Simulated scan of single mutants.
Amino acid sequence: MKRFFSPVRLRALLTKEFIQMRRDRITFGMMLGVPLMQLVLFGYAINSDPKELPAALVATSQDRYTRAMVSALEMTDYYRFNHVVGSAAEAEALIESGEVLFIVTIPSDFARKVDRGERAQILIEADATDPSAASGAISTLGTVASRALKRERGVPASQADADEGLDVIVHRRYNPDGVSQYNIVPGLLGVILQMTMVMMTSIALTRERERGTMENLLAMPASPLEIMLGKILPYFVVGAVQVAVVLAASRLLFGIPFVGSVTLLLSAVFIFVMALVLLGYTISTVARTQMQALQLTFFFFLPSILLSGFMFPFRGMPVWAQWIGEIFPLTHFLRVIRAVMLKGAELSAVALETSVLALFILAYAAIALMRFRRTLD
C-alpha cells in the first residue's frame, strides 16, 4: 500500500521538473530575463520629466540679448538647440517631421526694442502631440526668459520680480488644449496591431508541430515562401478590421482630429502590419511550442511598448534607451501615425520612418525563410 506522502517520490518528481526546466532554455531565460529587463527599463530608461529636448532656433541676429535667451533656456536642461535655421519654413519642416519638439523664434528687432524700453516678444512653438513631453519645458519659459533679460540689462537681483517688458508667446501646436487622448489613441492602433498580429502569427508553425500536422505541410509541393505567405496573409483581414474599428472609435468616441492623408496612413499601416506578421512568423520558426512562442512574444512586447514612445516621452529617455527603441517597428509607426493624423504630414516628412518599416519587412522575411529551410532537415 502506497504511503500518502513519500519524500523519495517527491525528490524524484522535483529532479524531473528541474531537468525539464533545464532543457527548456527559452522558459528559463524568460524567468531571469523579464525581471532584469523590467528593473533596467523602469529604473534607468523611463523618465516622466524629459530633459534636453531637441529645439530649433530661428534668429536673424546674434545680439547679446538673443544669446542670453538661448543660454538661459539651455541652462534649464529642458532645451537642446541642435538646429539653428534662418527661416520659419525650415523650422516648420523640422517640427513636422518630429526632429525637433520646439521652435524658438526671436525677431530681428528684439534687441532694438529692449534697448528702447519697448515691449519685446519671443515666440515658442511646441509640438504638443505629447502633452507630458512639452509641459515641463513650457512651464519654465516665462520666468527663465524674463530673468535672463534682466540679468543682461544689469537689473539688480532685488528687482528680479519686476516687469521687464517681455512677452513670451507660447503656441502649442497640433494639440493646443493638451488632450492626452490625442497622443494615446492613435498610438493604441499600433499597440493593438502589434499585440494581435505578432501573437497570432507567432504560433503559426508551432501549432502545426504540436498537432502533428507539420509533416503533412512539409510534404506538400510548396516552397518556403509560399508556406510563409499562406500563413501570414489571412491575418491581414483581421488587421484590416482592427484598423477600421480603432480609427472609427478614435473619431466618434474621442474626437481625434484627422488632418492628414488617408491614403498615406493606410499605406503606412499596411507596411507596419506586414512587418509584424513576418516578425511573428520568425518567432514561430524559433519556438518549439506555442508556450515558448507566447513567451518570446511577451519578451518582445515589454521593451517595445516602454521604449517606443507610447507610454513615456521618447525624447526623455537616455540616449542608449533611444537607440534600443529604434530597433522596434512600433517606434517608427507611432511617429508616422501621429504625424499624419495630428500634423497633416506629407510623405516627405515621414519618408524616413516609412523606409525603416520597409527594411524591417526585408529583414524579418529573410530570417524567417532561412530559419524555415533549416526546419526541413
Rank of each mutant, 00 (worst) to 15 (best):
F333E: 09
S261V: 06
V269W: 01
M195W: 01
Y65M: 09
A59P: 01
R119L: 11
Y65V: 06
M228N: 04
D109P: 00
Q295R: 12
T206G: 03
T213A: 10
Q38P: 01
A120C: 12
L279T: 13
A55N: 03
A12P: 01
F333A: 14
R211G: 06
E226M: 11
Y364N: 14
Y174C: 06
G316H: 08
A55M: 10
R207M: 06
L188S: 02
T213S: 10
N47T: 05
N82E: 15
R371L: 15
Q38K: 00
V246L: 13
N175W: 13
F333Q: 13
L229P: 04
I169C: 01
V238R: 01
I192N: 02
G165E: 10
F328Q: 08
D24Q: 11
R374H: 13
S284G: 14
R288S: 15
I324Y: 01
S355E: 09
S132V: 15
F360T: 13
I232P: 03
E52V: 00
A111D: 14
S308K: 08
A56L: 03
S146M: 11
V70P: 00
I232N: 04
D49I: 12
M200L: 11
G165K: 05
R112F: 05
H332P: 10
L101T: 04
H171Q: 10
L334P: 03
L188W: 00
S139M: 15
F18L: 14
R251P: 01
P176T: 07
A162P: 00
W323H: 03
V259C: 01
P131Y: 13
Y79Q: 05
K231P: 08
L264V: 09
T213G: 02
A91V: 07
V191H: 00
Y79W: 12
T60N: 03
P35K: 08
I203P: 00
P54A: 07
